[in-house]
Structures are given as structure tokens and as C-alpha cells.
Design a binder for these strands. Structure first.
Length: 276
DNA sequence: ACGAGGTCCTGCGAGC
DNA sequence: TGCTCGCAGGACCTCG
């Protein structure tokens, strides 16, 4: 499930392979992923339109075209964006949503088994409105612990839900929210406004550290996630809590618990290390 | 402003 | 073996 580190990995693979190049004969196989754009306008806009830049915003991949339009793809659960230097195999062609040849050789494909992913085509003004609705990037240099505390502790919602709220903070999803809360030793269900400034500072550091380490490991592959070149990530091997319910805590040996009481999502934690 | 719950989508594993 | 059912979950929506 691509969160910030996975999308960052995808973008780092895609950017050198796509920037300065042109999509040839793009084909859209499923149109239910489109948001506020018709299939026809999408294809007409991106065809023979040079890709100037591939970047990441939160969990979204952003393709900036020479025309000034941006194609924004949110892979959500099962989406993958890939560049191949060969033809796709029949197995790889399954679940392809958008595919295009590259001028000069190669193929770009967006695959998405469940198609919970979305695609937007935005002009400059629409992009500004789009990005303004999303919270700050947690790894940005100018995003400090004070800004983090200010944005995240002003509500009595559970701190885990707040961490994952894209309007408050960009890019953190279920995996890294669980991991960061474990590292910071904070009960995921604790109301955000009852997380003290010391704990909030620990959480800020934990979020940045876990995201940075996950990027270095090229993301977490549980099932579907692949890098931009089709490889699996490596962070699944070092997770402390996510997916480890019923197993012993890496720090104290207590059996980790999983609940679904926070926003209906799987939350795994150590009641001893993350005591209220 | 907040919480709860529905919706989208398909594969997979459990249970009968 | 073959069926149904519930779950996975991020973002968005409505309702109370």
C-alpha cells in the first residue's frame, strides 16, 4: 500500500526514466479511476506532451507536462507505476489501467488490481487548489517539531487517526503510523490533545526516522507494492509492529495486540511499551 | 467539530 | 470441490 516512502521510491525510479520523454499512443483500459476528467481529454492532453518532471506530493505521483498540465496518480492500495525497457508479459498486462509507449523505446504502465487508485488532470490553478488541501510534507527541511505539534495536537481525536489525516500531515498511512507510535512509545488511541509536548517531539522524530529508513529500504512490500522498476521493497523485514499482532514485542517481549477500534483500521501496538 | 459508518474495488483465505 | 462471506484499506461522503 503505497504511502510516502513507497511513492518516493517509485518517483525516484520513474524520474530519470521519464523526464524529458514523450508518451506515445497512451491507452486507458479502465476509466473508473478518472476524477473530473474524461478519457478523451486525458489522452489528448498527455499524448505527445513532453514530461518535464516526475515528483511526489504526499502519496501522489505528479507528472508535470510541457503544456503545464499535471497528471496526478494516487496508487492507493494496489496501484503500481512501472517503466519497462521491454514489452509487457501477458501477466504484467493484467490490471493495467494506463499504458503508453515512450518515444525512444520502453513502456510506461499504471497497474491497479483493485482500482481504488485515482487519476487527476490538473491545470496550474487546479493544482494549486489540490495541493493546498494537503498538509505539510513531514520530511521537508522547514517542518520542525513545533510545527508538527501545532498541527497535530489541537484535537481530541486519537493520535493515530490524526497522524493519518492527510489534511494535517502528508503521506503517513497505516503502516508508518503504527511504526512511529511504537517507536515514540505512545498509545495510538490517546487523544491528540493529551499527547504532551515531550511525547509530541518524540513522535515527530519517530515519524521522520521511520519514513527516512523506509525510503532507504525502498518501501514495504506486503503484497502488491512494487518499485518503479518492479522490485519488492525491503522494509517489511524490519517492521516492529505492523502485521505482527500476536507476536512478541521487539523491545520487551510482550505479545503485541491488534485492534480495529481506531477509525476501523488495524492498529497493532505493545500495551506495555505504549502505555497510556 | 466530532464520531460512526458506508462506498469504491478485487483477490484471498476461512468456513461450511 | 465449490460456494459464500468477510476482510484488506485510503480518501471521500453522508448522517446524527
Amino acid at each position: 500500500m503505497p504511502e510516502l516512502p513507497e511513492v518516493e521510491t517509485i518517483v525516484r525510479d520513474l524520474a530519470p526514466r521519464l523526464e524529458g520523454r514523450t508518451l506515445r499512443a497512451p491507452r486507458l483500459f479502465k476509466s473508473d479511476v478518472l476524477r473530473r476528467v474524461s478519457r478523451r481529454r486525458l489522452l489528448e492532453t498527455i499524448r505527445r506532451n513532453r514530461i518535464e518532471e516526475v515528483s511526489r506530493r504526499a502519496k501522489h505521483v505528479v507528472f508535470l507536462f510541457k503544456s503545464g498540465h499535471r497528471l496526478v496518480i494516487q496508487p492507493r492500495m494496489t496501484g503500481s507505476l512501472l517503466v519497462y525497457d521491454r514489452r509487457l508479459t501477458p501477466e504484467e498486462r493484467r490490471y493495467v489501467v494506463l499504458q503508453a509507449g515512450l518515444a525512444g523505446g520502453g513502456t510506461f504502465a499504471y497497474r491497479d488490481v483493485r482500482r481504488l487508485g485515482t487519476m487527476w488532470l490538473l491545470d496550474e490553478a487546479a493544482w494549486r487548489a489540490y495541493t493546498a488541501r494537503i498538509g505539510p510534507e513531514p520530511l521537508a527541511r522547514d517542518f520542525d517539531a513545533a510545527a508538527f505539534g501545532e498541527r497535530l495536537t489541537g484535537t481530541r481525536q486519537a493520535i493515530k487517526k490524526v497522524l493519518m489525516d492527510q489534511r494535517r500531515l502528508a503521506g503517513v498511512g497505516n503502516i508508518y503510523a503504527n511504526e512511529a507510535l511504537f517507536r515514540a512509545g505512545i498509545d495510538p488511541s490517546r487523544p491528540a490533545n493529551r499527547v504532551g509536548s515531550e511525547a509530541a517531539a518524540r513522535l515527530y522524530e519517530a515519524v521522520r526516522a521511520v519514513l527516512g529508513e523506509a525510503i532507504a529500504a525502498k518501501g514495504t512490500t506486503f503484497r502488491d507494492y512494487r518499485t518503479g522498476t518492479g522490485r519488492k521493497g525491503g522494509f517489511q523485514f524490519v517492521l516492529d509492529v505492523y502485521g505482527r499482532g500476536g507476536e512478541p514485542c521487539h523491545r520487551c517481549g510482550t505479545i503485541l495486540q491488534t485492534t480495529h477500534t481506531i477509525d476501523g483500521r488495524a492498529t497493532t501496538f505493545c500495551w506495555r511499551c505504549q502505555a497510556a
